[in-house]
Design a protein around this nucleic acid. Structure first.
Length: 216
DNA sequence: TAACCGATTCACT
DNA sequence: GTGAATCGGTTAT
């Protein structure tokens, strides 16, 4: 697989989350730690967009210390703690005061070395690919992402965490589906705002009946 | 300051 | 398939 360290263009972060979510598939996420770099490819995302989305932390314009970063203009990481023990990573998008973010739900390591580093961070027997980084909490553990990275710029290569150009998502087979575990979101729970690369073994949950996503 | 609960994961049956 | 673990963020008192 081709490793490309060109950062994503800044304009990428100007999209609303619903447009950015499928476009993030196939892009590269690079984590730099004192132990070295880990590079992976994004294979599953969810869009959390705007104050009208009942699934979003920013629903109704809720603006608190936690959600504040979502109201910034796009380009930063939104990292929060869920269920008291797992971190989730989001990419903040759109313009100032429009709270939009894309949850990164699964990644796959680019190289064997990356896979070994991630497995060492997981501290768990890996029986199948999705055990390694198929799930928002799993990938944060595998990449040593915690709340200290909240607000980190993702557009700056060489920082603790950044996004780089991978492959063109227009060439991928993409499935769209309802978002996971947001049953409280009422009618928004059924929106097909989750996107994943078809047949990728690192995807967290596969739909029984898969709906093919087409670019509009 | 108390109560409630979640954009999850894992061990176990 | 089921349920426990676990605690910061949010809201109400």
């Amino acid at each position: 697989m081709n490793i490309n360290n060109q950062p994503l263009p800044r304009t990428f972060y100007e999209y609303p989350a619903l447009e950015a979510a499928p476009r993030l598939l196939g892009q590269h996420l690079i984590r730099r730690t004192e132990a070295g770099d880990i590079a992976c490819r994004i294979v599953e995302t969810e869009s959390y967009g705007g104050i009208e989305d009942k699934g979003s932390h920013a629903y109704g314009g809720r603006r608190t210390a936690r959600t504040e970063i979502m109201f910034n203009s796009g380009g930063a990481a939104y990292v929060y703690l869920i269920y008291g023990m797992h971190y989730c990573l989001n990419v903040v998008t759109a313009e100032q005061d429009n709270p939009q973010a894309v949850l990164i739900r699964a990644v796959e390591p680019l190289t064997l070395h990356d896979a070994e580093c991630m497995a060492a961070n997981r501290k768990l027997k890996i029986k199948k690919p999705s055990d390694l980084s198929g799930g928002p909490g799993k990938l944060c553990r595998a990449l040593r992402i915690d709340k200290s990275l909240n607000g980190s710029p993702l557009s700056a290569p060489g920082g603790a965490l950044w996004l780089a150009q991978g492959e063109d998502p227009l060439g991928l087979n993409i499935i769209q589906s309802p978002r996971i575990n947001i049953q409280y979101a009422e009618e928004y729970a059924y929106k097909l705002w989750r996107f994943y690369i078809k047949d990728n073994p690192y995807v967290s949950i596969k739909d029984k009946v898969e709906q093919v996503f087409t670019w509009t």
